[in-house]
C-alpha cells in the first residue's frame, strides 16, 4: 500500500467513517441544509441548533458518502459543537486551506483544531477527493446562511 494512501486512510478516518459521531436528526434543530456531490451522487444533511447569539448548541448530520466525507462530517460535528458561528466559519476556512494545501504554515504547531483535523490533510494529494472532505462543511455554512441546498459543483 502506498504511503499517500495510508496518509489518506488513517485509522482515525476509517473509524469515523465506519461509526460517524452525531449521525442523527435532532428534533429541536432550527437550521438545516442538504449537500449534494453531483460527481458521485452522495448526499448529506446537516442539522444545527443555534441560539440567538449564534452559538452552535447542537450539530448533527445524516446521509451517505465515502469514508472521507463521512469522517470529515463526523469530525466537524465534534469540533463545531459549542462554538459560535464566526468561529465555526473560521474553522472551515482553516480546514479548507489544510486540505487544498493553500496555506504553507497551516501545519503550524500549537493549534489544537489543526492537530485534530490534520488527519484529513492527506486529501491534498488527491485533488478529486477534496470535494468529499469539504461537503459537510459547505453544507454547514449553507445552513448558517439559511440556504437549504448546496452542491459542490
Amino acid at each position: 500500500m502506498m504511503d499517500d494512501l495510508r496518509d489518506l486512510y488513517q485509522e482515525v478516518i476509517l473509524d469515523h467513517g465506519k461509526s460517524p459521531r452525531n449521525f442523527r436528526h435532532p428534533e429541536d434543530c432550527n437550521r438545516m441544509a442538504e449537500g449534494d456531490n453531483p460527481l458521485c451522487g452522495d448526499q448529506l444533511t446537516v442539522y444545527l441548533k443555534m441560539d440567538r447569539g449564534g452559538l452552535v448548541e447542537d450539530v448533527a448530520f445524516e446521509g451517505r458518502g465515502c469514508a472521507i466525507s463521512m469522517a470529515s462530517a463526523s469530525m466537524m460535528t465534534e469540533m463545531v459543537q459549542g462554538r459560535n458561528e464566526a468561529d465555526a466559519r473560521a474553522l472551515f476556512e482553516k480546514f479548507h486551506k489544510l486540505v487544498t494545501g493553500d496555506d504553507a504554515d497551516v501545519n503550524g504547531e500549537d493549534d489544537e483544531d489543526l492537530d485534530k483535523l490534520i488527519v484529513l490533510s492527506g486529501v491534498r494529494e488527491f485533488p478529486m477527493r477534496v470535494k468529499c472532505a469539504t461537503l459537510a462543511w459547505h453544507t454547514m455554512t449553507a445552513a448558517m446562511d439559511g440556504d437549504e441546498t448546496v452542491t459542490t459543483e
Binding site: 502506498m2 499517500d4 486512510y9 458521485c40 451517505r64 465515502c66
Partner: peptide, 23 residues
C-alpha cells in the same frame, strides 16, 4: 460491503487500475 465506491476508486487507482465509480 462497508466500503464506498469512491474510496475503492481512489485506492485501486494507486495500483494502476482505472475503473469508473459513481452513478
Amino acid at each position: 460491503d462497508g466500503v464506498h465506491p469512491h474510496d475503492i476508486g481512489t485506492i485501486v487507482d494507486r495500483d494502476g487500475v482505472a475503473v469508473r465509480v459513481g452513478h
